[in-house]
Design a protein around this nucleic acid. Structure first.
Lengths: 231, 231
DNA sequence: TTCTATTGTCGCAATTTGCGACAATAATAA
DNA sequence: TTATTATTGTCGCAAATTGCGACAATAGAA
């Protein structure tokens, strides 16, 4: 059995983009009806950031994910041992052996941006599902996880222009109109089409490739990728 | 004796502005030559943010400080029990009784902006000084505290335009040329004088008061305060 | 061949920003 | 009293950025 740092947890808001909607991964615990963000604990000999990447790998199957820490939640009000007790009991875990999980936790929150199509959502031993939910159609989340999602969205919006981070939600090659939909889903507002195109291209960090033929009756958009990327 | 959450600490980068320089408070531990950021631990029944405010009150004497959390440092490399042991021994503390301080800590870092002239820097029981240092003339800081300061500066610079946060480093009434010096100290670059004045005033959140006569042979600048403020 | 929906560009107006010009001081020197 | 000096508040204008409509260029369907 692993040995974790007590009182410290992490939670991940894992963003994906599909069907023109921004979505995140939500876990559902066995026999409890409780929904929560994917999270975990930090091994005694593990960097905090590495623990989060380990968790992401377990939930999504992906390495090398775009990841950003955005806030640490430390209010006493988030201490609800009865909830953790419910989860443990519903999973047949002994309370004595897992007493450390009943103590107060401070949670370091991260958001991750991933390519929806590459993910294989995988539940952990305590949960029976790990599923995508549109951010505007979330189930009731336990503890303060709703607030964590809100803050992740806010921070992501503020950081959106940093070197095109939004593109991490798309495949390696993507079109500018699609990227615009990502921006609009995150910011919750429509953006001017021509100004958006001009702005993105003016950054000079995208490389134009062949066109993407959608099979629809209209002009096809060009595909782009990051200049640096090989191939 | 207080009962703290194990494995969790906080560090504060407390900014002040004096003599046209940006400064921060640094503690020096008794008999060790070790310099560090002011920090502390979180009481079992205390909100993380409240713990930090309690620490700020103890070090500066001030309440109601502008405070922002900016990053949580959780690398294993910051675990150097021999340093904490040195500090405890130099202060005649028993290692048995304080063994929890020798374990690994994850540290939540905050920066605070205060009015330099209102502060009474006060050391704690482990340190013999709590002193202002210009950010470009810091002594060698222990552990990763140098990195914490760097990141605080970076984040502060990025947040500088949010509702004139920089003004928290000045008295209630201040002149625009002085505010510009604050900006320049934080950003580490000269700003255009007339553009700065126009930008700040265009925010429409400052109220103009009487002039400030410096005794120097030139036109006196106007004093400003936040519109909302009473008086 | 015509029609429809969407994309890539251009042009122009509106807004913001960089920067010099210049008048208005506040104290000192003549 | 009258210059002189250093600094501040504004204005004007050019350059850069942004919002938005116009329009040609498609890709496929009718």
């Amino acid at each position: 059995m692993r040995n974790f740092l007590s009182h410290i947890a992490f939670d991940s808001v894992i963003f994906g983009f599909s069907g023109e909607k921004l979505k995140i991964l939500i876990m559902k615990y066995h026999n409890t009806g409780l929904y929560a963000l994917p999270g975990g604990f930090v091994d005694l000999n593990e960097n905090l950031n590495d623990a989060v990447r380990r968790g992401l790998k377990e939930r999504t199957g992906l390495d090398n994910i775009y990841l950003e820490q955005f806030y640490t939640f430390g209010d006493v009000a988030r201490y609800k041992p009865e909830i953790m007790q419910t989860i443990l009991e519903a999973n047949g875990k002994s309370l004595e052996e897992n007493h450390w999980m009943l103590e107060r936790f401070i949670s370091v929150a991260y958001y991750a941006l991933i390519n929806y199509d590459k993910v294989v959502p995988t539940p952990d031993t305590l949960s029976d599902s790990c599923t995508w939910y549109a951010v505007d159609e979330l189930p009731n989340l336990m503890l303060d996880h709703r607030e964590i999602v809100q803050r992740a969205l806010k921070t992501l919006g503020e950081n959106l222009d940093k070197k095109l981070v939004g593109a991490n939600l798309l495949p390696t090659r993507f079109t500018i109109p699609t990227l615009q939909k990502v921006y609009e889903a995150i910011l919750g507002e429509k953006l001017n089409r021509t100004a958006f195109q001009r702005k993105i291209l003016s950054l000079g960090i995208l490389k134009r490739h062949e066109k993407e033929y959608s099979g629809k009756a209209h002009k096809a958009p060009y595909l782009y990728s990051f200049e640096s990327e090989a191939k």
